[in-house]
Design a protein around this nucleic acid. Structure first.
Lengths: 211, 211
DNA sequence: CAGTTCTCACCTAGGTGTAAAATT
DNA sequence: AATTTTACACCTAGGTGAGAACTG
């Protein structure tokens, strides 16, 4: 019924906007890596602060932590619908609000000048309904405040868990986007099947189901 | 430090908008009844759903329940700053978004065609830091879910409390606004020192103070 | 039986009035 | 003495993974 959040969430910092122009933040397109376009165009998540000035956006770290995923095809609460056991790559769209094309979460992201799209290989992840990897489970329990109830502070730090020590002071990366970087970014867009263990690969479970 | 909400909150239903036009909901001006304009122009609360189509606004009951009041003159969290022990009358502004005058919570509400202001005598209230009236205290404890901890279901229903029985099934009024009503509304704008015991008169405490 | 759904104890986050303490 | 501030117990609301129950 309800969706579940991603953890860690996409967090982004941007530079190079016109401080007095209005912008919309859009997180989409939830590409299935290496698949043809799905029959239904995927939903986009419009950042709740949206329609704010470039000045406002640039002054803060933009966090997509309220975004929720679901595997319920009939979801009517605006959650992002994904398929379990698939690999996805989040994208961030920065859309300048000049021509007043009302944008909805279902309409495709507009294109043209004033619309920039970014994506990062390290944020590729695989959706699951049950964790397949004990390291991911521990990472989430140790880092997500809402899972504190499962923390077991006095535990044996054996072999495999030593790896987790690496994450003890790790923080989700905050990338800085500049429009100058954009042309470089484009080249990177094609095949990003990154298996970097740093972020949430094989992590985020897509949540419980239907209405 | 933190502000406190109003209870019950302003709840409003509107009709007569252009379904495809964009509108902003604005709750202000927090007039001190019968006083000259205060030195600092009062803040307005921009409804969080704002910049939505007339269609969207009309389909739902618009609730201002997230609005927070404070008596802290130096508040920097966007709460509405009021003075304790004063009488206020909330107003609702419906602002058509055609000329792109960016509206901020601090800027004065624009005027002209496409901007309609409504207020209701039954929503006049008096700010306090401690309740002066035991009936208000009981009303809030009985009706506000967050005060459930103070409910004492098996209690003596003595004299004064019998009055409260009246409120047992009472719900905050949902008013319907139409632009046709607007001219009538204007006449009512001047002196509304309504002491109707129905709503929150002598109720809402303005919250704890400073940063 | 691999994958999914459901329920639950255990958290975070924050909205209540109370009563004591501080302020004026 | 009257009003405001502060700390607090007790709620609502909702985000966790665990583990039992369910599904194909």
């Amino acid at each position: 019924k309800a969706g579940r959040r991603m953890f860690p969430a996409m967090r982004v910092k941007i530079a190079g906007l016109d401080p007095h122009q209005q912008y919309v933040y859009h997180s989409s397109k939830w590409m299935v890596a290496g698949n043809a376009d799905s029959p239904v165009p995927p939903r986009a998540y419009i950042h709740p602060d949206s329609l704010a000035s470039g000045d406002t956006w640039m002054r803060q770290v933009v966090s997509f932590d309220k975004l929720k995923l679901t595997n319920n095809e009939l979801d009517d609460q605006g959650h992002i619908i994904l398929h379990s056991m698939h690999k996805y790559q989040p994208r961030v769209h920065v859309i300048r609000k000049d021509f007043s094309s009302e944008l909805s979460q279902n309409k495709p992201v507009p294109s043209g000048e004033g619309v920039k799209t970014f994506s990062f290989p390290e944020t590729v992840f695989t959706t699951v309904t049950a964790y397949q990897n004990q390291q991911i489970t521990r990472l989430k329990i140790d880092r997500n405040p809402f899972a504190k109830g499962f923390r077991d502070s006095g535990r044996n730090r054996t072999g495999l868990e030593a790896i987790m020590e690496t994450y003890a002071f790790w923080r989700p990366p905050v990338r800085t986007l500049t429009f100058e970087d954009f042309t470089n970014m484009q080249k990177q867009q094609g095949g990003s099947t990154g298996t970097s263990p740093t972020t949430s690969s094989t992590g985020t479970p897509s949540p419980s189901g239907a209405a």
